[in-house]
Structures are given as C-alpha cells and as structure tokens.
C-alpha cells in the first residue's frame, strides 16, 4: 500500500493524533471514559495502521521487537511492583493508601501506576501478536 498517495498522507496526518488521543484516554481516564486498556489498544492500533500503510519492515524499525517484548513484560511488572511497594511501605499487597501521606492522593497515585502498567502490557501484547501474524509467511509461498 506504499504507493497510494492519499493513504500515505492521511496516515501521516492521522497517526500523531491517534497517539495523542491514546495519551488523552490514558491520563484523562480518571475523569472521563477511558483508562489503561483503551489507551493500550489505541496505541497498538495506531502502530498497526502505520505498519499496514508503510510496510511491516518500516514499522519494525520504528518500534523494534525488543521494545515490544520489553513492554509485554514490563507492564505486568509495573503492576505487581505497585503491589510490592505497598507491602514495603507497611500496607497490604496492592494497598494504595500507604503510597502517600494523604490516603486519597495515595489512591490516585496507585491507580495511575496500575493503569500505566495495564496500558503498557496491552499495547505490547497487541502489537506483538500483530507482528507475529503479519511477519509469518504462508507456508507454500516461499517453498
């Protein structure tokens, strides 16, 4: 699809806004609809769009495999890490009240990091799955 001028231009205009929208969904998720899951999926969708228009090889250069695989694991670790920090600060696992002097602010901080972890994992998994499917050739094509 690299040769379609309209698609290329539209994609170039759209993708920054898609990523920006994903960030909005992520950080405004406390006040409006949205949160880690949606943001992660939108980030992955933007990059998949990029890969479809400009080719998988280009997308793999922009968002390399090691980064995606790191994201995959990092999100779960961030999430579990929030829980462990809660224990270290003298609370229970995933207890956010101890994360800050003010319990409400602590809750807010906990939710923020948990959502960040969810977002990173979801984006990583979706993107990795797409890479795996798209990068695989039909068996009889190259035999």
């Amino acid at each position: 699809m690299r040769n379609y001028l309209v698609l290329r231009v539209v994609a170039k205009i759209m993708i920054p806004f898609m990523l920006l929208y994903a960030l909005y969904v992520q950080f405004h998720g406390d006040y409006g609809p949205g949160g880690g899951f949606q943001a992660g999926v939108i980030i992955a969708a933007a990059i998949i769009f990029y890969a479809i228009v400009f080719g998988l090889a280009t997308a793999r250069r922009v968002v390399p495999d090691w980064l995606v695989e790191t994201c995959l694991a990092a999100g779960v670790l961030i999430y579990a890490g929030v829980g462990l920090v809660g224990i270290l600060l003298g609370g229970n696992f995933l207890d956010y009240f101890v994360l800050d002097r003010d319990p409400v602010a602590g809750q807010h901080r906990g939710i923020f990091w948990v959502e960040a972890g969810v977002c990173v994992t979801v984006a990583g998994v979706m993107l990795k799955i797409f890479y795996m499917f798209a990068g695989r050739r039909r068996e009889d094509d190259d035999a």
Binding site: Y96, Q107, G110
Partner: peptide, 14 residues
C-alpha cells in the same frame, strides 16, 4: 476514597 470520579476506573484499578 480514591479521588477518581470515573467509578469504572476506580473499581477497576483500586
């Protein structure tokens, strides 16, 4: 308790 008006997010994460 959480300072988050979106209850879905509050329940989900907290």
């Amino acid at each position: 308790e959480t300072g988050v008006p979106n209850v879905v997010t509050a329940v989900l994460a907290s």
